[in-house]
């Protein structure tokens, strides 16, 4: 049976332009996810919090250290590293990036929005890829800029004591870019957890548990066992790329560690993708 032609009889309704637009494409779903990300107040606040944390924490710490430089112990002075302080804002921003990553998708499950999203893109995976792509791109750009602001701010503050580094110094550029990379993958991991658990509280609990609680649990294990597991924990593997001083035996090599962290994120995202396609929405 062929459907009769639709007449544009209802006022304010036009059959032409809407029908002529063609179908769903990955690029269009990305555009939609971009709109969705920025049209929520909670997103904008979380991203602002992440930017402020990433940009300001290092500067505040550096300023505090310099103001009492004279009273610091020789050991403290010797271990002060303006690169690590310069990018160290990630200790705070990682929480905002992770929580928002979970929310980007769990918020759709809690409000029912996911049904609209999947009805518009019924193959489903384009929705997950678009969310990951948009959130990763936004995180990378914002965190790179914030890390650069922090890095140069810190160098300016410590230059009075001739402790500054340039971006061209060993590890400096890698630590700055690494910070943005680490936070980007962390955001993707959190988004994957949110997609897998379809629940905000559960997603955040899993994220915090995996990243911040697990190391404490491993520390309870007998020394040798704990020591052999510890470098492979997500957070310890991730930090290697975002610091200039991790070269000890208790950590994986810089890019090896980051690769392991990416592996964790990939496993979670893959599991979320499989489940998204298989399970009823």
């Amino acid at each position: 049976m062929s459907a009769p032609a639709l007449s544009p009889a209802v006022p304010g309704r036009v059959a032409g332009p809407a029908a002529a637009g063609g179908g769903v494409t990955q690029a269009r779903v990305v555009r939609a996810e971009w709109t969705k990300l920025w049209s929520l107040r909670s997103t904008r606040w979380s991203l602002l919090a992440a930017v402020v944390a990433q940009a300001a924490l290092g500067i505040i710490v550096a300023a505090a250290q310099m103001s009492r430089w004279g009273s610091l112990s020789p050991h403290d002075r010797a271990t002060f590293d303006s690169i690590d302080v310069g990018v160290g804002g990630y200790h705070l921003s990682q929480l905002a990036i992770g929580v928002l990553g979970v929310l980007v998708i769990s918020g759709e499950y809690s409000t029912g929005m996911i049904r609209s999203s999947l009805m518009a893109a019924p193959r489903r995976l384009p929705v997950l890829w678009a969310k990951l792509g948009v959130y990763a791109a936004v995180t990378f750009v914002l965190m790179l800029v914030s890390a650069l602001v922090s890095f140069f701010g810190v160098q300016a503050i410590v230059s009075g004591h001739h402790l500054q580094h340039g971006l061209g110094d060993p590890h400096a550029l890698r630590a700055v870019v690494g910070t943005a990379l680490f936070l980007t993958v962390l955001g993707a991991l959190a988004l994957g957890l949110g997609a897998l658990l379809r629940n905000t509280a559960g997603g955040i609990a899993a994220f915090v548990g995996l990243m911040f609680v697990l190391p404490g649990v491993v520390a309870l294990l007998p020394g040798s066992i704990g020591d052999s597991i510890s470098p492979y924990l997500p957070i310890n593997a991730a930090f290697t790329v975002a610091t200039s001083t991790f070269d000890g035996p208790h950590h994986l090599a810089t890019w090896t560690g980051f690769a392991v962290f990416c592996g964790y994120a990939a496993i979670v995202v893959l599991a979320a993708a499989v489940q998204l396609v298989r399970r009823d929405a």
Partner: peptide, 11 residues
């Protein structure tokens, strides 16, 4: 509505 429209290139 805008986000929904964008998935299909609806103006």
């Amino acid at each position: 509505l805008l986000a929904m429209a964008q998935t299909h290139g609806i103006p």
